[in-house]
């Protein structure tokens, strides 16, 4: 049996700790210790984006990220986006643009689009495609996601100027 160690980190704004083993990955940590299932392991290779988690402000693939590595880090998941019960502009845009079908990849898209708009508030289609290269949708709602990103950008701009 391998050694268990206690890590402490900030999860969606709150300080937390958890006992992890070296072979646990970040998705497993979130699901088993914190009941957060928005990050999901699908391909297990960092290619599909279903396991997207934000660590210290940067997106990572939770399936390829050892749980031990978030010791001391700031971790944010999709569950942080609708604070106080209000959907984020990106979440609203995904619903309004019908930018999902089965919904399994959706949290990953939502987080990546949020990061994209933080970096590029008014992205063009090429930027959107490049930024979302690592997010796959087997239902292939790509045209709707493209619409949703543009809609979200407008919503954020409107909110900022309001």
């Amino acid at each position: 049996m391998t050694a268990t160690r206690t890590i402490t980190f900030t999860l969606n704004g709150a300080p937390v700790s958890a006992d992890v083993k070296p072979h646990h990955n970040l998705v497993e940590l979130l699901q088993t210790h914190f009941g957060l299932t928005g990050a999901r392991e699908t391909c297990g290779q960092g290619l599909c984006g279903c396991c997207t988690v934000i660590v210290n402000g940067r997106s990572v693939s939770g399936c390829l990220y050892l749980a031990s590595f978030v010791d001391g880090a700031d971790v944010r998941t999709v569950e942080a986006l609708d604070g106080a019960g209000k959907l984020s502009p990106v979440q609203e845009a995904f619903i309004e643009a019908s930018a999902f079908q089965c919904g399994y990849c959706t949290p990953g898209f939502i987080l990546m689009v949020t990061q994209l708009l933080d970096e590029h508030p008014d992205p063009d289609e090429e930027q959107i495609k490049h930024y979302l290269t690592g997010n796959l949708c087997r239902c292939a709602t790509y045209p709707e996601v493209m619409d949703a990103v543009k809609l979200a950008a407008r919503k954020r701009k409107a909110a900022a100027s309001a």
Binding site: Q31, T32, L36, T37, G38, A39, R40, T77, V78, E79, L81, D82, L87, Q91, F94, I95, E96, S98, F100, G103, Y104, T106, P107, I110
Partner: peptide, 23 residues
């Protein structure tokens, strides 16, 4: 009418339940 998906909110917030992540 293009009614938005009834389950949309659960899906965009990561709270929709799937067997694979159930315990």
């Amino acid at each position: 009418r293009s009614v938005p998906r009834l389950e949309g909110r659960d899906k965009v917030t990561g709270r929709a339940e799937y067997t694979h992540t159930m315990r």
